[in-house]
Computed example of a mutant assay.
Amino acid sequence: MDRSGAIRRRLALGFAVLTAAGLMALMSPGSAQAADSYCSGRKVRTLSFSTGSVQIYKRDGYVCAMTVPKDQQSRKRTMSVSVQARGGRPVVDQGSFSHHAGPVTVHAGHRCVRVKGSVGSGSVSSSWILC
């Protein structure tokens, strides 16, 4: 009895089903996400500044942040977002974006984090938060 052939067929079928499910999820009508849904978890803080805001989310020890401009025009402008867990290096996304910078995610565990963000000439920088 050749069990390895049966196992390979089952694995191939399982892989095909997972691939099809993933493709269907990407093609579904609701796949265009609002800015709030790029980070998983619950929103724990919003840091507002003159030209935008940094939205901060937390889930299972991970902190995720993204910078969103105040005016939602689809023109490119310089934006950045940075999250740093205490004792670690900052994770940064910066460049010329139309809708948002980030998301960036760090594993903070129970450590404090520092969050920075900017849109054009406006910016914000937190102290150590979410301790």
Rank of each mutant, 00 (worst) to 15 (best):
Y57Q: 04
S28D: 05
V91N: 12
A25E: 14
G120P: 00
T51I: 01
H99V: 13
H110Y: 03
S123C: 06
Q73K: 13
H100T: 05
F49E: 04
G109W: 10
G120A: 06
R77C: 00
R89F: 09
S40C: 02
V113N: 00
C112W: 07
T78N: 15
C39N: 04
S74V: 10
D71Q: 11
V106A: 01
Q94E: 15
P69D: 06
S127D: 13
M79A: 08
I129P: 02
G120S: 00
H99D: 10
A32Y: 04
V44Y: 01
Y38H: 09
R114T: 06
V81M: 05
G122D: 10
T105V: 15
G117M: 03
V91F: 11
F97K: 09
A34P: 09
L23A: 13
G122F: 05
F49Y: 12
H110G: 14
G120H: 05
S118M: 03
F97C: 02
V115I: 14
V83T: 10
G61E: 09
P90W: 09
A108Y: 03
G88K: 13
D93H: 12
V92L: 10
K76Y: 13
T105K: 11
S31D: 08
G88S: 13
V44E: 07
A85V: 02
G52Y: 05
V68F: 03
A20P: 00
S28W: 09
S40H: 12
G88H: 11
V44H: 02
V113P: 05
Y62S: 13
V44F: 01
P69R: 03
T78Y: 15
Q94I: 04
R86V: 09
S40V: 10
A21S: 12
P69A: 01
W128N: 09
S40I: 06
G30M: 07
G109F: 08
R111N: 13
G102C: 07
K76H: 11
R114Y: 00
Q94S: 15
K58S: 14
G30K: 03
S82N: 02
S80C: 01
L47Q: 09
K58Q: 15
M66G: 08
V115G: 09
G109H: 01
R77W: 00
G109N: 07
K43G: 09
V124M: 05
S74P: 13
R114G: 01
Q73R: 12
M66H: 14
H110Q: 15
I129S: 03
V54A: 05
S96F: 10
A32S: 12
A65C: 06
K43E: 13
T78D: 14
D71M: 06
V106Q: 08
V106E: 05
V119N: 00
G61Y: 06
V115W: 04
G117T: 06
G102H: 05
R59V: 11
A85H: 03
G122H: 01
G22I: 07
P90T: 04
G61K: 09
G61S: 00
